[in-house]
Design a protein around this nucleic acid. Structure first.
Lengths: 207, 207
DNA sequence: TGATTTTTGTACCATATCGCATAAATATGG
DNA sequence: CCATATTTATGCGATATGGTACAAAAATCA
C-alpha cells in the first residue's frame, strides 16, 4: 500500500510552527475550564498557549471557534472515559463505580483548584444564547443517557437487576448523579465526599 | 406599641429615588441569569434596570456585590419554593413531584429562552475563583440535601418507604435529579421532557 | 544564492468595560 | 426663599478586549 500521509517528515514549505496544535488546544481548554468562555480573554489564552494572537487565529479561527473545538475535544474525552469503564465487563456496581471514579479524576485534574466538568462549568452557561452549544449539549447528554441505559438493559438480561426495572429511568438517575458530582466538584466538595456520594447513588440505583 | 418604621411616608430629605430597589435587583438578576457574571456588563444591567451606573453603585456597590445580592435573593426563592412544596403535607410522591414542578416553573420563567437555574447557570462557573460563592453553593446544596433527607426520614417513619431505606442516599439522588433538570433546562430540553424525567426519577426514588 | 511560502512578533485600531468625578435636579427643613 | 441632603445624569479616564495589518523570520525549492 502506498504511503498516504507521512506524519514523520512533513517537509512543509514555510517557517515551521513553534507550537504543537494539540498541546495548545489543551492549554486553551484549561483556560476556558477555569474561567469560562466569557471570562477568558484571548490574552490569557495567548499566554497559556505561548502562541501570539495571529497564530491563534491562523490555527483555530476566532475565540468562539476555538472554544467549540475545545468543547468537542472534551466530549471525546468524556465519552471515552465512560466507555473505557464499561468495556471491562465488570459487574454492574463495579462498572458504575468506575464510571464515576473516572469522572472524578477528570473533575479533579489540573494544577489549581478542582474545576469540575468542563461542559457543566462552561458550556451550560453559554447554551442559552448559542444554538451550536445547545446542540452539542443535547447530543452529549443523550449519549450518556443511552450508554447508561444500554448497560442497565444488559444488567436486566443478565439478572443483575430485577426484571421489572426501568432501564431508561435508571439511566436518567445515573446521568443525574454524574451531573451533581460535576457541579459539587466545582463548588468545592472534597473528592472523598463525592466518592461517597457516588457509592450511595450506586447503592440506590442498583436496588 | 410605638411605630418603629413608617414604610408608608419615608419623608426622606433629598431627591427621591427614581427606581424600586427590589425591582431593580430582579432586573439585574435577570441579566446575570441570561449571560452569566462575566458575560454581563454594567451597561447591560444599567439598561435593564433603567438605573445609570452611579445609581447602581450607590444602591448595590460594585458588580460583584450586586451579583452576590442577586445570588442570595435567588437562594431564598429556591428555598421557599421547595418548602412550600413540602408544607402541604402531601404523600411523598406528590410532594417530590411538586418540588420538581416548582423548580421547573422557575427554570422556565422569564421572557426569552429558558434559563434553567440561576445558581447552576451562573454561580457554579464562578465558584472556582470565588470563595464567597463557593461557600454560598456549599450552604445552599446542603440545605437541599437536608430538607430532602428530612422528608425521606418522615416518609420512612410513616411507612411511605421501606424501613431499611437510606434517607441520606435518597436525598442525594433527589438533589441530583434537581441538578440534572436545572442543567437540561438551560441546555434546551423541552419542559415536557423534564416533567417526564422527574416522574421517572420519583418512581425510582420512591421504590 | 535568490524566489517562494508559511509562521511569528509587534503594533495598531475600534470598541467595550469598570469605576468615579462633578454638576444638575429634586426633595425637605427652617 | 434659601440652606441642606440625596439622587440623577453626563461624561471622563484608564485599562481591557477582540480582531487584524504588516514586516521580519525561517523554512523549502529551484
Amino acid at each position: 500500500m502506498v504511503q498516504k500521509k507521512s506524519d514523520a517528515a512533513p517537509k512543509r514549505r514555510g517557517r515551521p510552527r513553534a507550537y504543537d496544535p494539540q498541546a495548545a488546544l489543551q492549554r486553551a481548554t484549561d483556560s476556558f475550564w477555569k474561567t469560562g468562555y466569557a471570562g477568558t480573554s484571548l490574552d490569557e489564552i495567548s499566554a497559556a498557549t505561548g502562541m501570539n494572537r495571529p497564530s491563534l487565529y491562523a490555527a483555530f479561527g476566532d475565540k468562539r471557534a476555538l472554544y467549540l473545538e475545545a468543547l468537542a475535544q472534551y466530549w471525546q474525552l468524556a465519552f471515552s472515559a465512560m466507555r473505557e469503564a464499561f468495556a471491562e465487563d465488570l459487574p454492574l456496581k463495579e462498572a458504575l463505580t468506575r464510571v464515576y471514579e473516572g469522572a472524578l479524576s477528570i473533575y479533579f485534574s489540573g494544577d489549581g483548584r478542582p474545576r469540575g466538568c468542563f461542559v457543566i462549568g462552561t458550556a451550560v452557561i453559554e447554551a442559552v444564547d448559542d444554538l451550536d452549544i445547545r446542540n452539542s449539549l443535547g447530543a452529549g447528554f443523550r449519549t450518556f443517557d443511552t450508554d447508561f441505559e444500554t448497560r442497565f438493559r444488559t444488567a436486566i438480561e443478565q439478572g443483575e437487576l430485577k426484571r421489572d426495572a426501568d432501564p431508561a429511568a435508571l439511566a436518567l438517575l445515573a446521568t443525574a448523579t454524574m451531573h451533581t458530582i460535576a457541579i459539587r466538584a466545582r463548588a468545592g466538595s472534597p473528592r472523598a465526599d463525592l466518592t461517597e456520594l457516588a457509592r450511595k447513588a450506586v447503592g440506590v440505583i442498583c436496588g
